[in-house]
Computed example of a mutant assay.
Amino acid sequence: MPARIHIVGASSSGTTTLGTALAVRLGAAHLDTDSFFWEATDPPFTAKRPEAERVALMEAALAGADAWVISGSLIGWGDVFVPRFDLVVFLHVPHAVRMERLIARERERYGAAIEPGGAMHAAHLEFLAWAQAYETPGFPGRSLERHRAWLAGLSCPVVEIAGTPSLDESVARVLAAAE
């Protein structure tokens, strides 16, 4: 069974949730790309780490690990890890569901700070605009178009999970594909 799995999808598609569940089920390490992409700041997600530093930190985290699950997106900076993948899982959640999840997560994390007049309101609106553009053709950020092109170039098996199956159903599909 593949022990090196990468889970990719749009923001709030469930990559971290599925990655955590799979890592527990497989007895594998779980790494989230946000932990490598972003420097630790307050508020979070405001300062990107230099690419070489991201790669070095992830290399160190993977050193000696036979089994791991990486959730999030490595596109544009983590191609050095692609040859190590045994399986890639692509989560494609309907836009409305994804945005509802994203807004709920932002409210849970930041509360009143993202409301009009709050210290993070402008950053929140900027993030929502970025996330809204995922399905927009030609969008230069993390996008469905870029994900599809990246997935098409992989040599390992790719499993797409579309819609909103339960977490248990998604885990079962990945485990079945990994056999």
Rank of each mutant, 00 (worst) to 15 (best):
P2S: 14
R4G: 09
R4V: 12
H6Y: 10
V8N: 10
T17I: 05
A23E: 07
V24E: 14
V24N: 09
D32G: 06
T33K: 00
D34A: 02
F36Y: 15
F37I: 10
W38R: 03
W38M: 06
W38F: 08
T41Y: 09
D42P: 03
P44N: 13
P44R: 15
F45N: 02
A47K: 15
E51M: 11
A56P: 15
A60Q: 14
A60F: 07
G64P: 01
W68F: 04
V69K: 05
V69G: 07
I70D: 05
S73Q: 08
L74E: 02
I75D: 05
W77L: 08
V80N: 03
F81A: 04
V82R: 13
R84N: 08
P94Y: 12
A96F: 03
V97F: 11
R101P: 06
I103P: 00
A104H: 11
R105C: 04
E106I: 03
Y110A: 11
Y110S: 10
G111I: 08
A112F: 09
A112G: 10
A113K: 13
E115D: 15
G117N: 04
A119H: 09
A119T: 15
H121C: 05
H121Q: 09
L128C: 04
L128T: 01
L128G: 00
A133W: 00
E135K: 01
F139I: 09
P140S: 11
G141Q: 08
G141L: 08
R142T: 06
E145F: 07
A149H: 11
L151D: 02
G153M: 04
G153P: 10
C156A: 14
G163T: 04
T164E: 14
S166H: 02
